[in-house]
């Protein structure tokens, strides 16, 4: 299935794009999709997405469509979903 990932903040700057497509097996969870994205990139982006245990960083705000997902391991994605990964920002 095809999922679009939208990224913001310093994550977007590090990726040099605001949006990328992932081709994932049906039933992939949000956590697995983010881990797959980390696997496609280097250590810097990995550390922005995952903590030392490999879990999704708790400081990220993650949403599927317009709804925040608070447990990425429990939410399965569907074909055509847009997954948004908001990297925390604090600029004033």
């Amino acid at each position: 299935m095809q999922v679009t990932v939208r990224c913001s903040g310093q994550l977007r700057a590090a990726l040099e794009t605001s949006s990328l497509g992932l081709d994932l097996p049906a039933g992939t969870t949000v956590a697995e999709a983010i881990a797959a994205m980390a696997d496609d990139h280097g250590a810097r982006i990995r550390s922005m997405l995952l903590d030392d245990s490999g879990a999704v960083q708790r400081t990220l705000v993650v949403a599927v469509g317009s709804a925040q997902v608070t447990d990425p391991t429990a939410h399965s994605l569907a074909d055509g979903d847009t997954l948004t990964v908001l990297h925390p920002i604090s600029g004033g």
């Binding site: 310093q10 550390s47 922005m48 708790r58 400081t59 705000v61 990297h87 925390p88 920002i89 604090s90 600029g91």
Partner: peptide, 14 residues
């Protein structure tokens, strides 16, 4: 609720 701990990558200059 959104950020339970200090985001490690954030720097004051942006």
């Amino acid at each position: 609720c959104l950020h339970p701990s200090e985001p490690p990558q954030w720097k004051r200059e942006f």
